[in-house]
Design a protein around this nucleic acid. Structure first.
Lengths: 238, 238
DNA sequence: CGTTCTCTTGAGATCCCTCAACACCTGTGG
DNA sequence: CCACAGGTGTTGAGGGATCTCAAGAGAACG
């Protein structure tokens, strides 16, 4: 569901969470796979905050950001959703976040009617959705810890760690990770400014913890060092 | 589930969320009410981060804080749970937060086996729990916005607004609200220090937005002003 | 009536933000 | 092929909101 925040569901096939919770999903997957798949172009919205909740969205390909805005334009990105994640289920009735495709996406749109039907008729579906949502809640609370209590370096290290778990490795035996979002999106996810994100990348680079390949590929040189920083156990980097 | 963050479930009877989602709950309530009720004393833990998840907890009386720690002791409180809320469902398998009674509490402990049984046997139970968790997720994302993008005054105003919605009014026709948590707990919830929380209370007091009656009772003098500040629309207070 | 805990207030330090300039890349059109 | 514009990322200098450290006031309790 939440890309960065869901190390538990780390594959990228459709509905890996069903498998990860050990739930019988023969007819289940079939039900979902019979739903409509749509393309969304870059920056196109899946739903807006305040809108009536008509569908849930299963990401098949691409990355989606889920976010909230303040009246003066300040933005907080709640999560980045990767293939296999479901977005749109953080309330009942109407959306409390907006969802936007970061890149071109292929997405299965599942109407709430279908969801209700599946909950009633497919044993295990509701349970799987519940467990998925519970894990998402735990991930979001992990992010609360980052936003409330971690320094910029700790936030970014945590972010990189988690994105590494989700990322489909471009080359399997390197630690090079694709970062599909811009600096401004990372900033709005971590509660920082673009400048601070950029400076913090530089700091991690200077510490030999990471190496940048372009601005959107990161090689993790020192996973242990990164973990130290992410968990606040480091003395060197603040 | 989450006190401060759940204006939607604003009553304080047992399992109001079942009602609030319009779910048939005759046998349902009965099932829950047949579970054991336990007393927890102040500062006693319901569960610890990392422990195997054996029970969910339905608060009957008192307030519970759900929190995470960093290795150096920094704490982030994820939520305050009031009567009617359920805690312990933010992951599957083992707890990713700790839960601690802020005051003496009466709490129903429901084993995960019982939960599983209810999901299988009670139509609507799983759905109710799903919707409850989804709302909790939305509330937590609202808190992300506070932590990531709001100033101290905006955070505290937001906090007071929400606690007002949950609080059982001591006297029905005043705007005096009991604050069952200490300054340090508010600080750890809002990602601030105790000193900043205290200073910000003073600031809101100076602006005639609130009045303090002791340190743990707040009278909201200007609800609109409070809302303005909370939503970041104010020009006066930063 | 001390002891302890909590809350408040002050003064200085610090991390991050704001504002600004510049480098880099891409696409476009002359 | 080059000039230019717009978007994105990086770096610098200064300022400000919040933190840290410190002291004192108030309340609870034995």
């Amino acid at each position: 569901m939440n890309a960065v925040l869901s190390p538990r569901t780390s594959t990228s096939s459709i509905a890996p969470w069903v498998r990860s919770n050990g739930i019988d999903n023969a007819s289940f997957s079939h039900s979902l796979s019979s739903t409509i798949e749509r393309k969304y172009s870059e920056h196109e919205h899946l739903f807006l905050e305040g809108e009536k909740q008509t569908h849930l969205f299963l990401i098949v390909e691409g990355v989606v950001s889920v976010y909230k805005l303040l009246s003066d334009g300040r933005r907080q990105i709640s999560s980045f959703a990767y293939p296999g994640d479901i977005v749109g289920l953080d309330s009942v009735g109407s959306h409390v976040n907006s969802g936007e495709a970061l890149s071109e996406c292929r997405i299965r749109c599942i109407s709430v009617n279908t969801i209700e039907k599946l909950i009633r008729n497919e044993p295990g579906f509701g349970r799987a959705l519940l467990y998925l949502t519970a894990n998402e809640l735990g991930d979001t609370r992990e992010q609360l810890l980052s936003l409330g209590r971690k320094s910029a370096a700790e936030k970014l290290a945590t972010f990189l760690q988690r994105i590494a778990l989700r990322s489909e490795k471009s080359s399997d035996y390197s630690n090079i990770i694709a970062i599909p979002m811009k600096r401004s999106e990372i900033a709005d996810f971590l509660g920082l400014t673009v400048e601070t994100v950029s400076r913090t990348f530089t700091k991690l680079r200077t510490c030999q913890v990471i190496r940048l390949h372009g601005s959107d590929n990161v090689e993790i040189l020192d996973p242990d060092g990164l973990k130290m920083i992410a968990d606040g156990g480091s003395v060197g980097v603040s």
